[in-house]
Amino acid sequence: MSENGFISAKDVVFAYEPEEGQTPRNVLEGVSMEIRRGEFVALLGHNGSGKSTMAKMFNAMLLPTGGKVFVEGMDTVDDAIVFEIRRRVGLVLQNPDNQLVASVVEEDVAFGPENLGVPPEEIRRRVDEALRAVGMYDFRLNAPYKLSGGQKQRIAIAGIIAMEPDCIVLDEPTAMLDPQGRTEVLETIHRLNEEKGITIVLITHYMDEAVQAGRVIVMDGGHILMTGDPREVFSQVELLKQHQLDVPQATELTHRLRGMGFPMPCTLTAEECVEALAAYLPPVG
């Protein structure tokens, strides 16, 4: 299994250190999944579903209490290669304010390569390239606190790209952003996936973000609930609703009509839904 996947998790169990007098509770209860090189995977679930814990397994920020996680065949528990793993799998966190280190954008982006001991001329090249990749090159001399949330999050992504990773894991990167910031960040990560072939693992609870992914993994209560391409996952409206997860309104509408006996396909977007309805409605006039 570990040979096929770029990242593979095998029966991962995890419990946080319990406080005194409390019994440890498993946050992950035997989760196995595989992320292939170049994929765009959305990891969906509620708070407490284990999705963020899983994300931190991918770059050895957390180590499984049971089971194994491999990154390109490297076991994450191996202390000697921890930086090798973190360079390959970058992690972007939720709060854009709390992950920027320096008071100047370009110096912040340089932080990762500086830690890796990259020579100065090479750092300069990587910083410029990373900032161009997220569309923030013109802001390289700005102070981060003067930027919008979406811009700050793109700087955080650039900081990871400058380490030239194979994969970026984003832990609810849009949860604190306004709609414009969300769009900026999503467009950026889709572009990185398509143009640079960077593997993306997007952790989110927004359904509309998951719809755009190549593959969706739904987690609940420390288990994997479903996995498949967006259409396979979202066609199971009842199951998602049972777990109080959202479904795009377009999907729900066609699902309801199907329940009433109309032969509607499963639709994911407004456009698809309009086309599906247009095919069944009586001709105009």
Partner: peptide
Amino acid sequence: FRRAYDLAMAMECRCYHGGEGRTKLKV
């Protein structure tokens, strides 16, 4: 404290391990 915790994690994610073997963007 919450910010400090987040920042420490973000720094670790970016391979921070003290001044040893660090280079600089600006010489």
